[in-house]
Amino acid sequence: MTDIFDRHYIFLNEDFKNREEAFAFIAKKAVALGFADDETAVKAALDHREAEASTGLQDSIAIPHAITKAIKQPAVLFVRSAHGIPGWETMDDQAVTQIIAMLVPEGSSEQHLQTLSDFSAALIEEKERQALAASKTPDEVYAVLTGQKQN
């Protein structure tokens, strides 16, 4: 778990005008953090998946994901936008502000795929989505997304 998601992969002070900007940011961070070696390829993979169907969910959450050879290590980034991102279709028409981005190497191990699956499956719980929206610090976001109880 810790190698896939970490407090350092949480970015709470961004503000995107559109999905393009958000994906460019995620791709840039993917390379900067050493998960991928090609920014353009990561962005293209995110766009490619989005073109099949929007990854917007409910309660302002979206779960874009990229599967590409350019990604060398699986990781989850959490990015929050101060303003809702227009033009990103969601299930309840609430604009996306909470982005859980999954970076997936081609041919990932079952263990890694399972961990990534668990991230999204947890978002079925309304309590989880509300806790995520209410979280203000990287520690809080980390605790919510990894299922750790805060005292």
Binding site: E52, L57, M102, V104, S117, D118, S120, A121, I124
Partner: peptide, 15 residues
């Protein structure tokens, strides 16, 4: 089942 089989598939199953 979904395009990547990674995020929406387990979510829908759990739901």
């Amino acid at each position: 089942s979904c395009p990547a089989g990674l995020a929406h598939t387990p979510m829908a199953a759990k739901a």
